[in-house]
């Protein structure tokens, strides 16, 4: 494997969890809900994914466990914000704090244990091609899944009736309700989808990115995913581009560190967070683009009148 192939491979592995988490949150926000608990759902997905795979020895079980953990966490958020109409920002923060705590507790007995790595799928013919093979066709199932989910989300949101209902719910929940759509149910479904994606993102970290459990191993990726959705102005394909940009920044930091030119390692480690701020400033400076796509009802509580 050449050096360039190696770099491209690591960029794809670093971008996939960001893409998975962000595309899930995009659907949630399109339905008018702001779930700041991505980090918490993701870290629970990571610990449950690791635990499931470690106990059974099967990475597939780990993936399912991670997905399940993400959904379970998101339903707690759904119950609070949709059924009890709590403040979404505060509830999302609570979800993150709770997830970070609980994952630490669950993961304590798994720290330092060997993990199970998600194996790459070998596609006969394609995977053996020079350069293109290892870079494009030498990945595990979740990398392909992240791309497939992005395409699916883009198609559903813009080309189907379900997508129209989701967007209507996010754009004006009173109108959607008046038209006879069950706003709360639509939002529950979107929140659960977001949880599933965040859980998968976490499972990917613990099964493919670094197959082990480290406390707080998400390291703010859930928050970066949230920023990505804003940066992409709620458009699925722009989320994908953004995720790969951020994955590149993340990996470049590591490589520059490896080369060892006199830049402090901490500055490079802080780079993704600084770039996130820069990206947010850049996009929020563009008022037209932001105004045009922001779901109008985002973060607003909705109580159906009978």
């Amino acid at each position: 494997m050449t050096a360039l192939e190696a770099v491209l491979l690591t960029i794809i592995t670093a971008s996939t969890p960001l893409l998975l988490a962000a595309i899930g949150e995009l659907v949630v926000e399109r339905s008018g809900v702001l779930n700041l608990g991505v980090e918490g759902m993701m870290v629970m997905g990571a610990v449950c994914g690791f635990a499931g795979a470690h106990i059974t020895g099967s990475a597939a079980v780990g993936v399912v466990a991670g997905l399940g953990a993400g959904v379970a966490m998101s339903l707690v958020f759904g119950f609070l914000t949709q059924t009890l109409v709590t403040n979404q920002v505060a509830t999302g923060l609570a979800l993150t704090l709770f997830g970070l705590g609980l994952s630490g507790l669950i993961g304590e007995s798994f720290t330092g244990l060997p993990g199970v790595k998600l194996t790459a799928i070998h596609i006969p013919g394609l995977s053996d091609l020079p350069f293109v093979g290892p870079v494009l066709f030498g990945h595990d199932v979740l990398v392909y899944a992240s791309i497939a989910i992005t395409v699916l989300v883009a198609w559903v949101l813009t080309r189907t009736r379900i997508g129209l209902v989701i967007r209507a719910t996010g754009g004006n929940h009173h109108s959607a309700h008046a038209l006879g759509y069950n706003v709360v149910a639509v939002r529950y479904a979107c929140i659960a989808f977001g949880g599933a994606c965040a859980g998968l993102a976490g499972a990917y970290l613990a099964l493919a990115y670094t197959p082990q459990w480290i406390e707080n191993m998400t390291a703010g990726r859930g928050w970066i995913a949230l920023a990505l959705v804003v940066f992409a102005t709620w458009a699925p394909f722009r989320v994908a581009v953004g995720a790969y940009l951020f994955g590149t920044v993340w990996i470049m930091g590591l490589y520059v560190q490896g080369i060892g030119i006199g830049i402090p390692a901490q500055l490079l480690a802080a780079l993704p967070y600084l770039v996130t701020i820069a990206a947010l400033v850049l996009i929020s400076g563009n008022r037209v683009l932001t105004k045009m796509n922001t779901p109008a009802c985002i973060g607003q509580p909705f109580v159906p009148d009978r």
């Binding site: 009890l84 109409v85 709590t86 505060a90 509830t91 709770f98 705590g101 609980l102 630490g104 304590e108």
Partner: peptide
């Protein structure tokens, strides 16, 4: 028990505060 129990309790407490505010 793990001292991480504290973090879990803190998270649960915030859930309940928000729910009770309803």
């Amino acid at each position: 028990l793990s001292d991480k129990t504290a973090k879990v309790f803190q998270g649960v407490l915030l859930f309940f505060i928000l729910a009770c505010d309803t």
